[in-house]
């Protein structure tokens, strides 16, 4: 203790004498961080500002600076397709978040019970994640196709009135997408959860057992609160997957039937490249950023702001 105290006093004295510029403190690591800072500033921040700037113009196939004020936003919010997109994202986001977390955690907890062949199951569950969304979308398009897939198989088994045709029913098409999304996404979350479960000290389990607490109750009351950082990581991964939902829709339904499975990212792509209307696409992507901001900023403030970690 005494030695440490003396050391820190010495350093303070030295600092007072030479007053080194804080900018050059730890110079090597700052130089190493320059590329990252450059990417963050120019690519992310610069790109964002550029997009917002041009969302106030009447840019067509190519950007121009013919300003039209808020016209693009007015058209965006009066468009039926945009409203349907937002609603669909809400439905998909809500069920995908809950579903992925619940299924992912349940699978992880089951694997954590030291079952036989854990490695094989883990690989099987994680395998869909190795596929691209395009492949997943096509596979599930076939499985959900009434003439080829599930409906046909069940009918051949003898249940001839069985009807399961979500992709052609505007009311439930989002759930057809959700099935494919969950199939693809839960494996990764399961692995992250499993790693989190393995990080829990054996002694916690022993203590719970000594106190006579049941397994399920131990998970819900003790283990899950201890896994908070793992849940935060999972939430970020799931959340970013929801907002950028695009390729699955393109592969599985291409927004149909009608416009009933449109999503905001697809609206942006169609406006920018199909309709050759960059201004409209930029306005839509700015709104997407704003929505993410509205959800993310208060949450990030609560999660990382108030208290210092470490």
């Amino acid at each position: 203790m005494a030695i440490a105290d003396t050391g820190s006093t010495d350093r303070q004295l030295a600092a007072g004498a030479r007053r080194p510029n804080r900018l050059f403190k730890n110079l090597n690591s700052k130089i190493a961080a320059i590329p990252m800072i450059f990417v963050a500033m120019v690519v992310f921040l610069g790109g964002t500002c550029w997009t917002i700037f041009y969302s106030f113009t009447k840019s067509g196939l190519l950007p121009n600076t013919n300003f039209v004020g808020l016209d693009q936003y007015e058209r965006l919010w009066s468009s039926r397709k945009w409203m349907v997109s937002i609603e669909n994202l809400g439905i998909y986001g809500f069920f995908s978040l809950i579903g992925t977390l619940v299924i992912g955690f349940t699978l992880a907890a089951l694997l954590d019970r030291k079952i036989r062949g854990e490695g094989a199951f883990r690989t099987i569950f994680l395998y869909p994640f190795a596929l691209s969304f395009i492949v997943t979308g096509l596979v599930w398009q076939w499985i959900l196709n009434p003439e080829l897939g599930l409906q046909n198989v069940v009918r051949e088994w003898g249940w001839t009135s069985f009807t399961f045709d979500p992709l052609n029913n505007p009311d439930i098409v989002m759930f057809g997408l959700l099935i494919a999304g969950l199939w693809q996404g839960t494996g990764l979350i399961m692995c992250i959860m499993l790693a989190g479960l393995r990080g829990i000290d054996e002694d916690i389990w022993k203590a719970a057992r000594v106190d006579g607490i049941g397994t399920v109750k131990t998970y819900v009351r003790i283990i899950i609160p201890m896994m908070r950082p793992v849940f935060v990581t999972s939430l970020v991964l799931i959340g970013s997957g929801i907002v950028k939902l695009y390729d699955l829709v393109v592969a599985q339904t291409s927004g149909g039937p009608g416009i009933s499975s449109e999503v905001p990212a697809k609206y942006v792509m169609t406006a920018m490249f199909g309709g050759q209307n960059l201004g409209q696409g930029f306005a839509a992507s700015t709104m997407m950023l704003l929505m993410v901001g509205i959800i993310l900023i208060p949450w990030a403030y609560l999660e990382f702001g108030g208290k210092k970690r470490g």
């Binding site: 397709k81 505007p170 009608g258 169609t270 199909g274 309709g275 050759q276 209307n277 409209q280």
Partner: peptide, 19 residues
């Protein structure tokens, strides 16, 4: 018709067709 208009009409008519 400009592609922007065609896209809007596509969206409208496909919604009508399946609703």
């Amino acid at each position: 018709l400009a592609p922007d208009t065609v896209t809007q009409l596509n969206d409208l008519m496909t919604e009508f067709w399946s609703t």
